[in-house]
Design a protein around this nucleic acid. Structure first.
Lengths: 300, 300
DNA sequence: GAATTCATCTGACTAAAGTCAGAGATATGC
DNA sequence: GCATATCTCTGACTTTAGTCAGATGAATTC
């Protein structure tokens, strides 16, 4: 269960006036700075074409465009000499879009205008106000993203899960003074993290996996949480907490009366989160070589 | 001269990612919550029709719409039975738009959807995150507004100036323990606040006057600042500071080597601002009955 | 190797959003 | 009372944004 709360009507009024202020003000500026050159649609497409090209299919997914519509936008960009479209060598059904020299220049121009827009927002303010505005904008960006994070059960053998676990192992190898070898850790295999012996959840943002966690069920004994990881870039957004809650819920559903986990002193943020979530330190209950702190939490 | 600073490229990058996050995220939600019912254009028009009606001309100015386009939008709202359009009794060229019963219901529905949109942004977050988001949104809204404030020389006898001064006197009457009577204060007349004897500036936001200030030039002696006021609703946005700077610049242009002003102990924010702006307290230099603190600042 | 699925494209649409040039009626300044 | 300005409207456009139904050719599955 997520620790969400129904927002008060006062908060809603503030959000509404924010929506209004931001969409009218930034919308008007966007018309002014970006709108002049070309249609929004083709600008967006031009912007998504990375330096080493992008498949038409990926643009479609990214911008959620109708295939016919995108096709037409690409034809018009092609006519203007800004992009080339050719068959992908890997799968000749797929077509790959690449920027021409002129396209690269046009894309740089879009970037410049976007900078000008940003500058026009900041310029009238004092240095202190600029700092406060940028800070508040960062907070808004981050929390809007946080609201988009989805925590869901997943197959621990899936590509995204593998990638997440690999990122987790990498991080441990970097942070543990003596490095980390998953083979020496308990439960190196992921096949247990599935019904009926366990569970696995992935956190996603914009389709990308940005966190994971696993749980093992031990009938009549505490459930055991393992492999909790959150991507560096999204720390502080409450993702870890949500993963933890999903795993606890899974344990609860399996009749567990409590959950345990172990961790390492060098993972300070994780330890702080466990404590905040109601975990209390207990005597070592296993011989995980990488652990030096063991925790337990009763499930209400 | 305003105390503005050229923003760093790092700040610009943050603003850009904010623009992106906010326009895509809120834009998508707007399509979802508001777009379904009717076209954005007619929704915006419907929203602007206040309970006691609004002139077509005012809608056009508010929303910056082409007159032909607006006319057509109004015809379609009329056909749907949501508004009535009739000649204004004051000037029969002007037409006034009024909501019908159905229009009022439809407008309420728009408000409800706008609430839903706001709620959908907050709902997935924890109570703490919601609080942080709303705070940050308020800061952004306020500072975006602050960037729109214009401080400009104005005629002290104009309507906006009169209204600002009246608001100022009202506030003093409320805040001074013994009340305030402008007639007993020094320089009750505004005709001196104009070239060549003085100056007057107005601060505006969205066309509305939200602050003012006056200055008197005394050849060879310090210039003298008076009647500084900032609307309650926009305090803390640096408007006072900007008015002060505009008046100091006017004094500088007139060859003044320093500026003086006096104030009352009950105006604590004003006093804090004067000190922060480089004013130092001096001996009383006049017999303004409402003053108990006198300040001076050398002009660099 | 036939059937199916996939990626893209073309053609034929629609709705929204907006622009521009006047027309017609009314108000205002001199 | 005449010239000029103001306010709104209509008609005739254009551009943008998008939808939908196939057609085509390539890859995959059985």
């Amino acid at each position: 269960m997520d620790a969400t709360t129904a927002p008060g009507s006062d908060a809603i009024a503030h959000v509404r006036s924010f929506n209004r202020a931001v969409t009218t003000r930034i919308g008007a500026l966007q018309d002014h700075y970006l709108g002049s050159a070309r249609s929004l649609g083709s600008s967006r497409v031009l912007w998504e074409v990375a330096d080493d090209g992008i498949d038409v299919r990926d643009i479609r997914e990214l911008l959620e465009l109708d295939s016919g519509y995108l096709s037409r936008l690409l034809r018009s960009l092609e006519r203007e000499g800004l992009v080339t479209v050719e068959r992908s060598p890997v799968d000749t059904r797929v077509r790959t879009v690449r920027l021409t020299e002129a396209g690269r220049a046009e894309r740089a121009e879009l970037g410049r205008r976007s900078d000008e827009l940003a500058e026009s927002l900041l310029a009238p303010l004092s240095a202190g106000q600029q700092r406060r505005l940028v800070d508040a904008m960062d907070t808004v960006t981050k929390l809007l993203d946080a609201a988009l994070v989805q925590v869901e059960p997943a197959d621990a053998a899936s590509d995204d899960a593998r990638r997440s676990l690999a990122a987790y192992y990498d991080e441990l190898a970097r942070r543990f003074p003596a490095g980390f070898d998953p083979g020496r850790s308990l439960h190196p295999d992921t096949h247990e993290f599935a019904e009926p012996t366990g569970g696995f959840v992935l956190a996603r943002l914009h389709g990308r996996a940005i966190g994971c966690g696993a749980v093992l069920f031990h009938d009549g004994e505490p459930a055991y949480i393992k492999r909790m990881w959150v991507d560096d870039a999204v720390r502080g957004m409450g993702v870890g907490r949500r993963i933890l809650e999903a795993l606890e819920q899974a344990a609860r559903n399996h009749g567990a009366a409590s959950v345990t986990l172990e961790t390492n002193a060098s993972l300070t943020e994780a330890i702080a989160m466990y404590r905040a979530a109601g975990y209390v330190e207990v005597e070592p209950f296993n011989d995980e070589v990488y652990a030096d702190h063991w925790f337990e939490k009763p499930l209400g």
